[in-house]
């Protein structure tokens, strides 16, 4: 069977597995975004606190995924939950780190202006700080998504969902009928899915850009553009 014939014959299964793969990754990243942003917001003002938070997240990321998935089996069993937790843990670091960076890069004068006109802490966070840090946070989300796409393939090892099944069964029967096709389709599927999701996130970035070009302003707030040059300066990213 050629590669194309294989694709054709397993169409339904492959589509289902791709969908599962995307679902578990996006769920994990969504949870990690909430967790990462919350921890980032809670710790970014304190040098110690944010150092510890980032260090812990970084330490988690160094645990080999195979080992982490395996270690989660005894308490949680096989299936959907252990890979979801593992993926979430891995996805936290880039988001957390970018949240902290995004928030600390905001011009202190802006923060004070917000305070000075009578905004409370929560309102400041919601209307000024998070929107200004958002492009940086979103960049973290994209990194997390790319990273967990690959790791999710290993979830099949503990009975998790996704394209990992194709890869694992292909590699297990290497030399057998269709084994190469299986490994290839699994791998390519993950890559294509990752690119597609990243494209969507990039689009989301364009749609949610705070104002047009507020990102450059958040990073370099002192450089007010000269008169006249301003109209076109917004989109230089």
């Amino acid at each position: 069977m050629t590669f194309l014939e294989y694709l054709q014959s397993r169409r339904t299964l492959l589509l289902a597995q791709t969908l599962e793969h995307a679902t578990i990754v996006l769920t994990a990243v969504a949870i990690a975004t909430v967790v990462g942003v919350l921890i980032g917001v809670a710790t970014y003002r304190h040098r110690r606190g944010r150092a510890i938070a980032v260090a812990v997240a970084a330490a988690i990321l160094t645990i080999p995924s195979f080992a982490l998935l395996g270690l989660l089996i005894p308490p949680l069993g096989l299936g959907y939950v252990p890979p979801l937790i593992a993926l979430t843990l891995y996805a936290v670091l880039p988001i957390l780190r970018n949240t902290v960076v995004g928030l600390t890069e905001i011009d202190p004068a802006l923060r004070e202006a917000a305070r000075g006109i009578g905004m409370g802490p929560l309102r400041r966070l919601a209307t000024v700080e998070i929107p200004l840090a958002w492009p940086v946070i979103l960049a973290g989300i994209r990194v997390s998504t790319q990273m967990t796409m690959g790791i999710a393939a290993i979830a099949a090892y503990v009975g998790g969902p996704g394209l990992g099944h194709q890869i694992f069964s292909g590699l297990a029967n290497l030399g057998g009928v269709n084994s190469l096709n299986q490994a290839l389709v699994g791998t390519l599927g993950v890559v294509i899915l990752a690119l597609a999701v990243d494209l969507c996130l990039a689009l989301l970035g364009v749609l949610t850009r705070p104002g047009r070009g507020a990102r450059s302003a958040a990073r370099n707030p002192r450089s007010a553009p000269p008169a006249g040059a301003a109209a076109t300066a917004g989109t230089a990213h």
């Binding site: 004068a109 802006l110 917000a114 006109i117 009578g118 209307t127 000024v128 104002g211 507020a214 958040a218």
Partner: peptide, 22 residues
């Protein structure tokens, strides 16, 4: 304090405008 500040106009260098808002 927040209510007090809403009753006092506050102007800083360069206006301190929020760059992401019109």
């Amino acid at each position: 304090p927040t209510e007090l500040r809403r009753r006092i106009g506050y102007v800083i260098q360069q206006g301190g405008l929020f760059p992401h808002m019109s």
